[in-house]
């Protein structure tokens, strides 16, 4: 029985992931996925790097704008924030807010 439940959970997780990906346009889906190389699969991080999954949309947008402007202290994120347009930041914020 335990085995069956585990398999069912794996199956559902797969569906959930593809469902979320399908909701975003392919450009947003791609750039958001590249964030996960540092911030962890599904936006869930291990260790010092913050998680992005479920982050408040407004907080995400403000953080990226502040990194870009240099008004928020940052190590690597100023370098990254400068590389994206405001529209891309908005779309990424919505994408990560939707990940649980």
């Amino acid at each position: 029985m335990t085995k069956k439940i585990t398999l069912a959970i794996v199956g559902l997780a797969g569906l959930a992931l593809s469902g979320i990906a399908g909701a975003a346009d392919i450009h947003t889906q791609s750039i958001a996925s590249t964030c996960m190389s540092c911030h962890g699969p599904g936006g869930k991080s291990q260790g010092a790097i913050p998680s992005l999954a479920g982050l408040d949309k407004e907080y995400f947008v403000k953080s990226m704008k502040d990194f870009k402007a240099g008004t928020r202290a940052a190590s690597i994120m100023k370098r990254h924030a400068n590389g994206y347009t405001d529209a891309e930041v908005e779309a990424m914020a919505a994408y990560f807010a939707g990940l649980k």
Partner: peptide, 10 residues
């Protein structure tokens, strides 16, 4: 350190 753990998991 965190980057390594996360990219391996990714």
């Amino acid at each position: 350190e965190s980057w390594a753990k996360n990219i391996w998991a990714e």
